[in-house]
Structure formats: C-alpha cells, structure tokens
Design a protein around this nucleic acid. Sequence first.
DNA 1: TCCAATTCCTAGCGCTGCTAGATATAAGAG
DNA 2: CTCTTATATCTAGCAGCGCTAGGAATTGGA
Lengths: 190, 190
Amino acid sequence: MSTQARRERERAEREQAIIAAARDLALAEGWDAVTTRRLAAEIEYSQPVLYSHFRGKDAIMAAVAVEGFAELAVALASARASATDPRQAVADVAAAYTTFAEQRPAIYDAMFTLAVDLPFASQDVPTDLARGFAELAETVRPFAGDDDLEAVTETFWSGLHGLVTLMRSGRLRRADHDRRLAVLVDRFSR
Amino acid sequence: MSTQARRERERAEREQAIIAAARDLALAEGWDAVTTRRLAAEIEYSQPVLYSHFRGKDAIMAAVAVEGFAELAVALASARASATDPRQAVADVAAAYTTFAEQRPAIYDAMFTLAVDLPFASQDVPTDLARGFAELAETVRPFAGDDDLEAVTETFWSGLHGLVTLMRSGRLRRADHDRRLAVLVDRFSR
DNA sequence: TCCAATTCCTAGCGCTGCTAGATATAAGAG
DNA sequence: CTCTTATATCTAGCAGCGCTAGGAATTGGA
C-alpha cells in the first residue's frame, strides 16, 4: 500500500511541524506563550490533532528537549575537539555549555528545569543526554585525580547548571559571568 | 483610635495567615496546588481579599520566599558557627544548604527558581538574602586565594544550587549526593 | 437613629489543558 | 461505479486557573 506509506510520512511530517512550532514559539516568547491553541493554529490543524501525536503539552515540551540534548552534545563535542590542551578543553567546554543555555533559554529549561518525568521515559533521550554527559566526563577526566570520575563530572555539570540558572533568574549579575566561569574552570582543572 | 489599631492588627494577622497557608500548602502539595481559591478557603475569606493584601499570586509566593531567605541565613550561620576548622566549615555550610533545599523544596523554588522579579523589588529581601550570601562568603574566604571573593562565593553558591536543582528534577541520583557534595567542598576548600 | 465610609462577597471574564461526540473524508467490497 | 465501513478531523464544551468589576453588608461617627 503506497497510500498508507504516504499517510505515515505525512503524519511524521506533521509531528515534526508541531515540535518545530513549539520550539520556535518557546524561543521567541517563552513557554507560557506556547498554548495548545496557538500550536494548533500554527500547524493549521485543530487542537485535538495535537493529542493524537502527543499525550499532552508536557510531551511536546519533552520532544523539544530531546532535540536540545542532541544539539548540546554536538556543541560540547565540538568545543572539546578544537581545544589545544586539556585545561583549555575544560574552559572551552564550559563556555560552550553556558553559551548554549544562554542562546536557547527556553530549550534549556525544557531540558533541565521543566518537564520532569516524561523525557527520561522516552527511548532516545538517555542516548543523547549520555552523549553530552560523556563529553563532560572526558573533559574533566585528566583532572579527576583520585575522585570518582562520575561524581566529579556531575559536580562540574552542577556548577555549570547553577551558574546558568541563577544568572537567568536574576540572582547573579550577568556582567560577572566570565569571572565566575573562570573560577569554576580553575577549580576543576588542576 | 483603639479600633483602628485593632483592625490594623487583624489585617496584619490575616496577611500572615495567607502567607502561612500558602507556605504549608506549597510544602505539602507543591505550588501548583496553591490556587487563589484554595488559599481563600483556607483563610475563610473570599478570593478578592487576597488581592487587598498582595498584588497577585506571584506576590504571595514572593512573601513565602522572603521568609525562606531569613531561615536559610540562620541555618547557614548556625552551621558555620559550630564548625571546628575552616575546611570543616565549608563542608558543614554546604551540607546545611542542600539540607535546607531538600527539606523545603517548594520554598527553595520560590526563592531561587520561580517568582523572578517580585521578591527582589521588595525591601527586606536584599537584607536576608545578603545575610545568607555573606555567610557563604565568610565560609569560603580562607580558600579564595588570589581570586575575587565575590566571584568565588557566587560560583560556590552556583555549585550548591546546581546540585540541588538537578537532583530534585531527577537528573542526578540522590544516592550519590554525598559524594558529589564532597567533591564540591574539596574543590572550594584547598 | 441615620448617614457615610469601609469591608467584603457574588458573579463573571478570558484564558488554560484537555476530551467527548458528531462530521467529513477516504478506503475497500460487491 | 456504488455503497458500506473505517479512519481522520473538527466543533463544542468541561472544569479549572488568575484576576476584577460592581453590589451588598457591616461598621463607625454625627
């Protein structure tokens, strides 16, 4: 059945359109502006169609987050690959991480602050998330010393995450960001 | 006018009752469960009364956060005061911070992740928040070295905040918390 | 005792995520 | 080619949200 294949393809395209619309709208106006009605209007279908693709708004946000995990992994890998020495790699990866979060605040939120349960239940999230985590681990490995690598990586990650979130919620002055990042990098690369 | 004094007192008591109800409800069921209708029912007044005390739900959350800032400052000061040596002080203060956040997740959220603008516009927030920040600064001061103390403090704070938020959103296993905390403490106390 | 001012509540607006039931469209059988 | 069946989609609506206008009730002072 060729028609069935076509319909499945169209369905997949529509699903991608939903994710793209949610992503764009969230980046432009924040997640509060992403309502099911606006999404439906954007893809030129009625509201209930969304629910034939996703279980609810949270699942749509999770799908956007999944894309984000893949993007972040690429950004970190690129930063690490182009660094000249291990110490510089830590600095570059840290900078790449915070830059990613700064440039796509809504996506970063979907990945790490909102949508608690759903993304981790999906199949492909662990893969891409693990890829990004592995990049961080390889970056700090030369400086882990006697400490457990996983614990060091998670702590380094937490430092980056804290810097990003506190800055964007207005608790930390954006002007001093580089100085703080330098402190964190220094503490994890010696 | 004695009656006027009484009414003002009753008004203040009712305002405190609103904050307490919001705090209790948020701690018990999360901020999503704190609706203006439930709050009104809790204090046994109608909804619009809330708006004669606070500009809106955000302002009520901000009021809960303000109390939290004072509590956190006390907890950190207590931990620092009872520590035997500077290195132990870092460990104790860090543990006190994460314990505070773990035990009062909803309040911690109101303080540091939600209610972005309002609390910092108020008068008494900077005081209590600064007090907590000062405790952190004094704790890490012996280990700041040549680095700017404020930058080190903010970075240490970010590490704690990251550990707390990533753990509670399920991104970090709770079982490994102590190990991560030890890594963070080690990196900021040598 | 009456009036004025304050306090408070009822009712409702526009919005949200989500869904049941009806309708239009397409596919397969005779 | 027509009719029936199945699928895809929409219209309309529910319950809940934060918030507010306008009227009712209570209170204090003359």
